[in-house]
Amino acid sequence: MDKRKWLLLGAMMASSLAWAGDVSVRWEKPDDYTDIRPTNESRDGFRDRVCKELGKVFEGYGKKLPDGVKLEITVLDLDLAGDVRPMMHGNNDIRIVKDIYWPRMTINYVLKDASGKVLSEATKEEIKDMNFLMASHIPTGNTSLFYEEKMLDDWFRNKQRSGVFPKLPS
């Protein structure tokens, strides 16, 4: 009985993997972004961590796209939630999070089908969440940047809801 359960589980996992698009992310000149400033990490280490964490968020959307669909994203600018301020005493700065310092990102994207035909594209699309402190959001634990993750999740969900990005077959 246990062997059949494992075989069934493996078959379900294999079938779920069959329906997946591909997402690639390119970070263009991250040193020039509006706000990718650390508080208690090195600048390079923080920048690399932010790009890695948000890159994983974008790449996760491939699981929500049909097989063969490719979404290519170029991040042009990033402004993290909050504002970094120097501390008067000590070496570490502090990030002040207030509703006037909302997260935002500027991207280019191209969405292609399996044959390479462009389904949708945008240049300098502004993604922002001006109500980031008002909405309820339970952190996923996938990233330490939960305001930015929620902003991107809302953007992707809205693209699928409006039909710009295709959904998985039901």
Rank of each mutant, 00 (worst) to 15 (best):
K117Q: 04
P38N: 09
K117W: 07
R26N: 05
K70F: 15
N40C: 11
A11P: 05
L145Q: 05
S136V: 06
E41M: 13
I107D: 01
M1G: 09
V50K: 05
E41K: 01
K128S: 08
L133T: 00
W155L: 14
I94L: 08
V25E: 04
D113F: 13
E148Y: 05
T106M: 10
G90Q: 05
M151W: 12
A135M: 04
V25S: 01
D113K: 07
G45C: 05
D93M: 04
W102D: 02
K159G: 08
R104Q: 07
R104H: 15
D113I: 06
T143N: 00
L54R: 04
M13I: 12
G68Q: 04
G10S: 14
E148T: 08
T140I: 01
E148W: 09
A18M: 13
Y61P: 04
W102F: 14
H137Y: 08
L133Q: 00
G45T: 11
G163S: 01
L80S: 11
A122W: 02
D99K: 15
K117D: 02
A11H: 10
P86E: 14
R95D: 15
D35Q: 03
L80R: 09
E126K: 14
T74L: 12
G10K: 12
Y33R: 07
L78Q: 07
E125T: 06
D48R: 11
G141N: 04
K128V: 05
M130H: 13
E148H: 07
K56W: 05
W6H: 15
I96H: 08
N142Q: 10
L152D: 00
F132D: 06
G90L: 04
A114K: 11
V50W: 10
K112M: 09
Y101G: 03
M105F: 08
K112C: 09
F165W: 10
I36E: 01
Y101C: 01
L145V: 03
I107K: 05
R47K: 14
K3W: 10
P139D: 11
D67P: 08
V118K: 14
P30Y: 15
V50Q: 13
G62H: 09
M12N: 05
P103Y: 02
M12H: 13
D99F: 15
M13K: 13
G62I: 02
S136G: 09
D93V: 01
H89P: 03
M12T: 00
M130K: 15
R4P: 10
P103D: 06
T123L: 06
I107H: 04
G82A: 02
V50Y: 07
K29A: 09
D79N: 03
S24C: 06
Y101D: 02
I96L: 10
N131G: 10
N131T: 06
E121A: 11
G21M: 00
E126M: 13
K70Q: 11
L54F: 03
Y101S: 02
M130G: 12
F165V: 11
K159Y: 02
